[in-house]
Design a protein around this nucleic acid. Sequence first.
DNA 1: TATGGGGCCTCCAGTAACTGGAAGGTCAAG
DNA 2: CTTGACCTTCCAGTTACTGGAGGCCCCATA
Lengths: 131, 131
Amino acid sequence: MNIKEVATRAGLPVKTIRYYEEIGLIAPRRQANGYRVFAETDLHKLAFIGRARSLGFTIDDCRRLLALYDDKDRASADVKRLARTHLVEIGTKIAELRAMQRTLSDLVAACAGDERPDCPILGGLAAPSGG
Amino acid sequence: MNIKEVATRAGLPVKTIRYYEEIGLIAPRRQANGYRVFAETDLHKLAFIGRARSLGFTIDDCRRLLALYDDKDRASADVKRLARTHLVEIGTKIAELRAMQRTLSDLVAACAGDERPDCPILGGLAAPSGG
DNA sequence: TATGGGGCCTCCAGTAACTGGAAGGTCAAG
DNA sequence: CTTGACCTTCCAGTTACTGGAGGCCCCATA
């Protein structure tokens, strides 16, 4: 199948698929005219990558996951380890965002939000008092 | 003061400060020998930017916040609007991360994590069944 | 005066993961 | 034969820095 079809079926932009080939995640064959030809396995891999990416795995994670996916002898523990590491990272990011959210919503709550220039938000950014 | 001192006092890397000058966030004077000279106002601005960045404001947000900070006539509502938009973005990001967290921890829980190759995590990435 | 060690400068390249656009080849339909 | 959709490559830009090379500048010490 051609790039547009595989893009539609995998739910990824055409440009992204070319990029994935460039960085070696997939290696579709070529026709005599230079067009890429995608096999079913390419489609599967692309769908796999798309899903992993949407779960926040990096491209490097995807590379490792694909290797594990291709390796019929690997232990499920290997995959689980990667996933768990990623879960920890997600947890950390959520905690950081929540801290931002708290600080910022305190500042927003303290601000009158009217036509006067006095604003605790800018004040809080200029010199934090307790954060 | 020299760049190293202002970097220490503002809690930012020297490189970052040069970068901030390059993109026009600050404009320190120069000595005859080419060295940057930072005034107290430069230090204040840098500390301000550092704090806004740590709260997840983009550089572009910082540019706008600095403009508001410099403008003694702006209404506090202008600042509040920017902060509130940012709060919404933070909220969205947290929700997305939580969704990832749920999906991924379900997959991790379903995986035996032993030496056998059978792994629901890879299965779930290859073809999601319900989420 | 020479030397050594910081500190400072600029410029270039690279990061992550694409995205947009230009210039041009290919194919099927009318 | 032309039109238009599709395909190709290559280059540049995005965000917010970060690292390194190569080279001044300044101060202290021998």
